[in-house]
Computed example of a mutant assay.
Amino acid sequence: MFSALETRVPPPILLLALAAIVWALPGSTYSLVRIAIGVPLVVLGLSLNAWPKTLFRHVGTTVNPLHPERSSALVTSGLYRYSRNPMYLGYALALLGWVICQGQPLGVVMVALFIGYVTIFQILPEERHLSVRFPAEYAAYKRAVRRWV
């Protein structure tokens, strides 16, 4: 039933949709302190998302999250030494930064939804594909590096 959602919603679209929901929630308030904390988180998160893409391009594998079966190399260097999913971690941090900027405590629910949705409908299918494509190498990598942090 839920498998129809696997790798169907591009994570950047999900991120933007949830950020828009946070923005539309009533009662958002701004303060310099929240902006001073939130903006660096947004920048850090987007940087964490962008940097690994250069590694993917360098080794010639796909960065398209809708087609994990097209993976031609397993990237385990750079940020991938610390997290198996630094791109998604970056998006989650960016969304958290946005929530903080908006002064919207309910927005934390959107961060949790992002993490849950991406884990179930993006990361788990990607892991299945990588386990088939690189069985021994990916199994060792999974034992050595955590999914998120």
Results as ranks from 00 to 15, higher is better:
103 G>K: 06
118 V>K: 06
39 V>E: 08
100 I>D: 10
60 G>H: 01
120 I>F: 14
69 E>Q: 13
100 I>A: 08
82 Y>V: 10
28 S>P: 12
47 S>C: 06
56 F>S: 01
114 F>L: 10
24 A>I: 04
96 L>E: 01
36 A>E: 06
93 L>M: 09
24 A>C: 14
29 T>R: 15
91 Y>M: 11
25 L>E: 00
81 R>W: 08
81 R>G: 11
72 S>L: 15
63 V>T: 14
31 S>A: 13
36 A>W: 11
62 T>H: 08
78 G>E: 10
49 N>L: 09
31 S>L: 00
89 L>I: 07
24 A>G: 10
52 P>K: 12
73 A>R: 15
33 V>A: 15
46 L>V: 08
88 Y>A: 05
44 L>H: 08
37 I>D: 10
116 G>T: 11
119 T>V: 08
95 L>T: 00
83 S>R: 04
82 Y>K: 07
86 P>H: 06
93 L>V: 09
51 W>D: 02
38 G>K: 06
47 S>M: 06
39 V>Q: 10
113 L>R: 00
38 G>L: 13
33 V>E: 14
111 V>D: 00
71 S>Q: 12
36 A>D: 04
96 L>S: 06
59 V>N: 01
42 V>E: 05
107 G>D: 03
121 F>Q: 05
109 V>K: 01
81 R>E: 09
44 L>I: 15
113 L>D: 09
113 L>W: 09
66 L>N: 13
50 A>E: 10
27 G>D: 05
84 R>E: 05
67 H>C: 05
73 A>K: 15
75 V>Q: 09
42 V>D: 02
39 V>D: 11
89 L>P: 07
99 V>I: 02
113 L>M: 12
119 T>G: 04
31 S>F: 03
24 A>F: 08
35 I>V: 13
81 R>V: 06
103 G>H: 06
63 V>H: 04
118 V>R: 02
34 R>I: 01
65 P>T: 05
66 L>Q: 13
109 V>P: 02
104 Q>F: 03
97 G>N: 10
69 E>K: 08
31 S>M: 03
29 T>N: 13
65 P>Q: 01
43 V>D: 00
72 S>K: 15
89 L>M: 04
64 N>D: 15
87 M>F: 00
54 T>Y: 13
55 L>F: 07
42 V>I: 11
115 I>C: 04
102 Q>P: 04
91 Y>N: 11
96 L>A: 13
67 H>Q: 13
26 P>V: 01
92 A>Q: 00
120 I>L: 15
111 V>F: 03
108 V>C: 09
72 S>V: 11
81 R>Q: 14
31 S>E: 09
80 Y>D: 02
109 V>R: 03
99 V>M: 05
97 G>L: 10
56 F>C: 05
87 M>W: 03
60 G>N: 02
78 G>R: 04
72 S>Y: 13
45 G>S: 05
89 L>R: 04
67 H>T: 14
25 L>N: 07
61 T>I: 09
53 K>G: 07
101 C>L: 11
116 G>D: 11
77 S>E: 15
76 T>V: 15
